[in-house]
């Protein structure tokens, strides 16, 4: 079978221009994502300054071991993702698949641990949802509720991004399954890699602001 040279989409002059445009588009998109979380972080910071004591106390009720485990899982997935990119460069289809699947497994592991952590908080009556009892053992119960509201919204938003990232990885796995020429995949690989790295970075911010700034 003759190898057909990949053609750019009709608005581009060549593949190089298309790749530059797509990567830049992804970067700009990630900036918007960063600002989406940025608004949430700004709000959290404001409230933390207004209610320093109870926020620190509430942070102490989060599970640092589980969050640390999750940080390890996610950082490792960042490594496997980078390795997948290298495997595409090297043209090894089997290795690429292995690394993508490993990344997915680590991502699912993260969501599992996160879900268990939420379950624990629900058990401890720290989930301020309508119909649930919010039982705060200390003073300033309402301000503690504010903390947990923001905690669930921010981690929930991050988990949603993880799910989207996993979907993206699923697409990549399908693409790798039917790959013919690895060079056709570099653009998609880089885009999904950028997204995954972004989700990683946001988690690091969440980990430091929510868990590590405790008492």
């Amino acid at each position: 079978m003759p190898i057909v040279k990949p053609a750019p989409a009709e608005q581009f002059d060549d593949m190089g221009q298309q790749r530059r445009a797509v990567l830049m588009g992804m970067w700009v998109f990630l900036v918007t994502e960063l600002l989406l979380f940025g608004g949430g972080f700004a709000m959290f910071a404001m409230y933390r300054v207004q209610h320093p004591q109870v926020f620190a106390e509430a942070a102490g009720h989060l599970s640092l071991p589980l969050a640390t485990a999750n940080t390890v899982l996610l950082l490792t997935s960042g490594l496997t993702m980078a390795l997948a990119e290298q495997a595409v460069e090297a043209g090894s289809r089997r290795l690429t698949l292995v690394f993508y699947l490993a990344t997915m497994a680590l991502g699912l592991g993260f969501l599992g641990v996160k879900g268990y952590e939420w379950y624990q908080e629900w058990q401890a009556q720290l989930m301020p949802l309508p119909g649930l009892v919010f039982a705060w053992p200390g003073n300033e119960s309402q301000q503690a509720e504010l903390f947990f509201n923001l905690y669930f919204i921010l981690t929930g938003l991050h988990a949603l991004h993880m799910v989207i990232g996993l979907g993206l990885l699923g697409v990549m796995v399908v693409l790798v399954q039917r790959w013919r020429d690895p060079h056709r995949l570099t653009r998609q690989t880089q885009v999904s890699g950028l997204y995954w790295a972004f989700v990683d970075v946001i988690w690091l911010f969440l980990f430091t602001t929510l868990y590590l700034l405790g008492p």
């Binding site: 949802l129 309508p130 301000q143 504010l146």
Partner: peptide
Amino acid sequence: GIGIFDPSLG
């Protein structure tokens, strides 16, 4: 029904 901007929650 959770408070973010609700003054009664701080």
